[in-house]
Design a protein around this nucleic acid. Sequence first.
DNA 1: GTCTATAATAGGATAGAC
DNA 2: GTCTATCCTATTATAGAC
Lengths: 205, 205
Amino acid sequence: MIKNDQPKDKIIDVARKLFASRGFEATTTRMINKAAGISEGALYYHFPHGKQEILDTIVQQGIESRVSLLAVSLTNSTTVTDIETQMMTLFDQLWQAFQSETSYQSFIITIRERMLLSDEQSHWLIDAIQQIQARLSQAFQNVEKLALNDSQAADNLAMIVMSIFQKVLYDELLIKNQRRLSADVRERVRQQIHFLLAPIQTTTN
Amino acid sequence: MIKNDQPKDKIIDVARKLFASRGFEATTTRMINKAAGISEGALYYHFPHGKQEILDTIVQQGIESRVSLLAVSLTNSTTVTDIETQMMTLFDQLWQAFQSETSYQSFIITIRERMLLSDEQSHWLIDAIQQIQARLSQAFQNVEKLALNDSQAADNLAMIVMSIFQKVLYDELLIKNQRRLSADVRERVRQQIHFLLAPIQTTTN
DNA sequence: GTCTATAATAGGATAGAC
DNA sequence: GTCTATCCTATTATAGAC
């Protein structure tokens, strides 16, 4: 994360912080100006359309950054030694995409100000989750160790895994306002994954 | 739902609608006055502390109403004929708690304006879900048909079931702004529940 | 208990100098 | 490209008549 000292980036940076902590409507242009160390007029030079344009820029940047972070790699191999471990790696990668202050803030803003955004902008998380889910389902089908009857079963398994992950994301980030992943929460996820996968693994481990 | 015509209730009613659709900060007292058909001064007679007091009242009422709606009944019997059916009934009950316009609106407000609320107020959903989860775990242990090794397993199963439900609630209500439960979404939940329970049911059906 | 009128302030946005 | 000064409107909240 290169801190660009250009005023435009500075404005985005302080505005993101303010929008995340106080909300878009409660943040005034004067607050942004003061925090960015610029004057009343300068803001409208960089963002002629004012506050809304700053919001759009923040949301758009955030989505782009997370989309690339969420392009997770799943080893499609049939010789996976530990599927559970791989699932936890996937979970950690997912969590990682919301770890940096910037990611976290723009995530909060994107969810909370959804009525000010386009459907496209507010649906990004569901879309991203669905894409990972599809690739997860594919990966499950290629794992011979799993006793899955058909592609429908793989779909269901992938959906359940993503539900477990997503519940944690929503609860911790959105409701509890908790950016750090506690060992406790992670352990509970691990146990659920273990419980879920154990009965459908073939006995020849 | 008795529509009370008292001005105080009318104010709460229109404010809830406005807060849900436009957000708290973007809603002015003038909008509320106009929509409620009262004058500038009347609002401050009923709510001396202004907008924030209205918000608190709405959130508090919403939590109380949902807490009672979420006091779901689980038949603790060991002779359950169809556990899957019972899970779907639970899901429908859960969904029902957010179905009425009033419930839906105050839910949206409670999540979105969480920075203006106390931790207690914003944690209610997680707490409610956890309570249902605990009773669900207990119920699972009492069902002989399920091949659950220990209480830990029942906990995990209950957590996974609630994750499946909660993901749907968040996605549909919060992100998609979709209050009606589509048959498609419900069917996907049913399949996941089936997939989850099938392998751990004893063969002697 | 509800009204009208208005005070006091803060909001977004712009003009024009430098 | 950045500043100061300011316009215009909207905001919350109150005073005082009825």
